[in-house]
Design a binder for these strands. Structure first.
Lengths: 117, 117
DNA sequence: CACTCTTATAAAAACTCGCTTATATAGCCC
DNA sequence: GGGCTATATAAGCGAGTTTTTATAAGAGTG
């Protein structure tokens, strides 16, 4: 399943938003999503499975609970794809990089002047 | 249809990649995608329709041809959502912004010194 | 005007996905 | 072990999507 397919579902996006705040148990996630989307516990569990199996989330067991956390790898991939288009809505990004480089140059120069005195 | 659903389809992603190189006619896009995915002309046309109707592409007529181009607006939205997670794979981005601010500060200072002399 | 080329639309079939109900697995506490 | 809690899996149904075949609509060209 492609990363974009995983993100295509609103429940899964919400789960990732919640996980982005930090680790959460399956039960906590289920409560929130159940309230917001009105779906059952197994439905949430299946979404968590999709997130797991596609590398968006990791799990560790703590007693009977399963604690989920974000794994950003696939999100980075999605971002990489998206960035091909970034110049179209952030034409200033290149200008920003230029500015950054200039900042470094000037700072280097100041350091040299300091060494001369 | 949510932006992520639009991007969920590999044919549509490919179409956007092609359009990212510049304007292309429906026929040109169809040829490439037909070769790569083995689908029919109407299938491609319907994918183009999805891109149009969801704001990912604009069309202009040139004679009998229809020239498609990328409209980045929905991609920007997708990027905005993704960026909530960016700190997880680009922890240096915050450092970069700090550096940028410092560059500006030092440059402002140099300008002041110049004014004094 | 007839013919061809380019592109879009319609309808139906095939497939995919997510949800629900039912059930299983595993830990915890008595 | 028995019962309770937490979570996952299985099977089936229904809805939505994608594809194909068939057709239409519009522009260029002789």
């Amino acid at each position: 399943m492609h990363a974009f397919d995983v993100l295509g579902d609103p429940v899964r996006r919400r789960l990732l938003e919640l996980l982005n705040e930090g680790e959460h148990s399956s039960g906590e996630l289920t409560e929130v999503v159940r309230a917001e989307f009105g779906i059952s516990q197994p439905a949430v569990s299946q979404h968590l499975r999709v997130l797991r199996e596609n590398g968006f989330a990791t799990v560790r067991r703590e007693g009977a609970r399963r604690l989920y956390a974000v794994d950003p790898s696939p999100l980075r991939d999605v971002d990489a794809w998206l960035r091909r288009f970034a110049a179209r809505w952030e034409p200033h990004l290149m200008a920003l990089e230029t500015e950054l480089a200039r900042g470094r140059r000037e700072r280097r120069q100041s350091a040299d002047e300091g060494r001369d005195r």
